[in-house]
Design a binder for these strands. Structure first.
Lengths: 194, 194, 194, 194
DNA sequence: AATGAATGAGCCTTCATTCAT
DNA sequence: GATGAATGAAGGCTCATTCAT
C-alpha cells in the first residue's frame, strides 16, 4: 500500500539504495559508512536496518538491481528482425551508451566486480538475465559472424571495454560524442568480428 | 645501508609494501587495516610509520612502484629493430603476460584505479614512464599502422583489456595457455590496427 | 473478555510473559531484547507496549507472577491436620519438586534475585503471600521443632537450596529421582531441625 | 618489566578486571558496558582490547581468577593434622567468611553461574583446583563422617549456601557476627554430617 | 488490538595514529 | 629501528521505545 495523498512517493528502501550508490561511486566502499548513507538519504542509520540485514546485503542487493537494469537496457531494443551483425553492434552500442549516461552505476559495477564482495554465487543468481545475451553470442559465433571466443573474452570486449570507456569519459580523459561512440563501437566490433 | 652485511636482506619497507599488496589484492582497501598489514609483515603497526607517513602514502607509494614495474616490463624487451607492427603486438603481449603472472599486482591496480585514491596528480608523476609508450603509439598511428584513436582509448584496448583478462584468468573464468594468450593478442590487435 | 467465545484462548499478554520467561531463562537478561521477545511470541514489538509500560515492568510483573505461583504451590497441599514436622518437610519437598518441574521459572527467579531488578520494594509487595509461610516457620520454631534461625537463613535452607538443586538438575550435574528428592529433603531437614 | 620509579604500580589489566568486577557486581551484566568499565578504570575503551579479545573473554577471565582465588582461600589454612571433621567445618567457615568479606566477588560468581556465560567447559578448566577439595570430601564420605551425597549436592550445601548467605548479608537481610557465622557453619554441618 | 516504520541513544569493536621507551 | 601501550574517532549494528495508521 503506497502512501496516498503525497505526490512524491517516499520509498525509503529505494532512497537508501540511491544514496548508497551515489556515495560508493564517489567515495568507494572504504569511504562509505552506513551513517553517511543514512545522512545522504535523510533518515536515521537505524532505519536502514529495517530494509537490509546489514551493509553487505545492502551492497549486494544494490549490485543485483543495477546489473539487472544494465542487462535489460542491453536487450531492450534488440530487434530480432535486423541482421545478427547489426544486433551485435547494437548491443555494444547500448552498453556504452547506458554506462556513459549513468556514471555512478558504471563506477559502482567496476568497484564491486573487483572487490571481495564479488562472488561467483552472486553472478549465478543473475545468470537468467545473461541467457538471452549468451544465446545471441552463440548464434553469432555459430554463424561465423564473430570469432569463436570464450564467453569471458566476449565479456571483456563488450561489458568491460564499455565500462573502461565510460570511466575515462567520466574522469574527463576521453571526450565522447554520438559520432565517437560509433567509432568506439567500430573498434570493439573489429576486435570480435571474424 | 645494511644490504651488504646481511645475507638475508631484511628490507622492512619492502616487507610492508608486499604485505599491503597481498592483503589489498585479496581483501580490498575496505578489509585491509594497518594492523593487518603489520601482522602480515610480522612487525608492529607502529613500525610502519617509520617508513610511511600514513596509510594513504603507503598505498600511493605501492601503486607507483607497481605501475613503474609494469611499465618497465612492457618496454623491457621492445626491440626497436623489429617492425613497428611487431613492437605493438609485443607490447600487448607483455602486458597480458605480466599481469597474468602477477595476479596481486593486477588486482591492486584495478582497485586503485577505480578508487578515490586515484588522482590525476598521481598519474602525472608517472608520466615520464609513459613517454616511450606514447611515442611508440604515435609513431604507429602516424605510419597508419593502427587506427587514429585518442590515447585513452588506446589504454582501454591495451592496459585495461589485459587487466580484465588477467582478472578473469585469476578467478578461473578464463583459461589461458601460451597459445590462447596469442589469440587474445590477435583480438586486441584487430581492435586497434588499421 | 473474549475467553468464552474463542476455544483457543489467545491471551496475548500471557503469550508475552511466557516468551520473555523462556528467553530470559535461556539467554539471560543481557541476551533478551524486546524484539526477541516479540518474535518468540509471534507478535510485533510494538504490541508488547500495549500490555506493559516497558521492559522493566514486563520483567518485574513476570517475576511477581512466577513467585506467586511458587508460593501457592508450596502451600497448596499443606494439610494442617498433619504434624508440624511433616508440614515443614512437605513444604521443602514442594519447593524442590516445583522448581525441578519448571526449570525456566527456576532459572528466571535465580537470575532476577541476583540482578539489579531485585529491590526490597518488590518483595514487600509479595509479602502477603509469605505470611502463611512465615507463620508456619514461627510456630515450628516456637515449638522447638526447628532451630531458632533468622528468616533469611530459613530461606537459604529452603528456597535457595531448592533453587540450587533444581539448577544442578537442569544442567545435568545432579540426577534426581523420587527417592533422591526425598534424600535431599532429609538433608535440608537435618540442617534446620532441632 | 614493571614500570620502575613509580611507587604505585599501574597494572592496567588488573585495573580493568577490578573495574569490571565492581560494575557487574552492582549493575549486572546487562548494565555493564565496556565504556562504563573503561570509565571506571580511567582508561579509554579501546585500551581494554589490548588485554582482552572482547567482553566475553574479559568476563570469563575475571570469573576464572575469582574462582581460583576462592578455591585457594578455602584450602589455604586447611591444616591436615586436625581431625577430618574439623577440616570440613573449617572449609565451610572459610567459604562463608571469604564471600562475606568480598561481596563483589560473591555477587559476580552468583550472576555468572546462573548466566549463559556459564559453560561446562569453563568449569573443566578449573577442575584442577577442585581436586584437593573433592579428595577431602571423598575421604570424609569414606570414613563415614559425612553422608554419602553426590558431589553436586555437597557443592550446594557448601559453596551455594555460603553464597546465598553472603548475598543476604550484603543486602542487609541477614546480620552476621563471628558467633552467628559459627552458628551457620553448624547448620551447614548438620546438613551433611552423618 | 495490533503493527510497520522510524529513531536517538548506546553497544561492542576496530581504526589509524602517537609516543615513551 | 622498533615496539607495546594507549587513545579519540569512527565503524556497523542493536536497543527500547514511539507513533500514525
Amino acid at each position: 500500500m503506497q502512501k496516498h495523498l503525497s505526490p512524491i512517493t517516499k520509498d525509503t528502501k529505494a532512497l537508501v539504495l540511491r544514496a548508497a550508490l551515489n556515495l560508493i561511486a564517489e567515495q568507494g566502499f572504504h569511504g562509505t559508512s552506513m551513517s553517511k548513507v543514512a545522512k545522504e538519504a535523510n533518515i536515521s542509520a537505524a532505519t536502514i536496518y529495517h530494509y537490509f540485514a546489514g551493509k553487505d546485503e545492502l551492497i549486494v542487493e544494490l549490485y543485483k538491481s543495477i546489473k539487472i537494469g544494465l542487462m535489460r537496457a542491453i536487450l531492450a531494443d534488440l530487434n530480432e528482425t535486423i541482421p545478427l551483425r547489426e544486433q551485435m553492434r547494437c548491443m555494444i552500442r547500448n552498453v556504452i551508451r547506458y554506462l556513459i549516461a549513468r556514471p555512478h552505476e558504471a563506477a559502482f559495477i567496476e568497484q564491486f566486480d573487483r572487490s571481495p564482495y564479488n562472488t561467483t554465487m552472486i553472478h549465478e543468481e543473475l545468470g537468467s538475465y545473461l541467457q538471452r545475451l549468451t544465446t545471441l553470442i552463440e548464434r553469432a559465433s555459430h554463424e561465423q559472424i564473430i570469432k569463436n571466443l570464450p564467453d569471458a573474452l566476449m565479456e571483456t570486449f563488450t561489458l568491460d571495454v564499455a565500462s573502461s570507456i565510460a570511466r575515462k569519459h567520466t574522469t574527463g580523459a576521453l571526450e565522447l560524442t554520438d559520432e565517437t561512440v560509433e567509432q568506439v563501437v567500430d573498434v570493439c566490433w573489429d576486435a570480435i568480428r571474424r
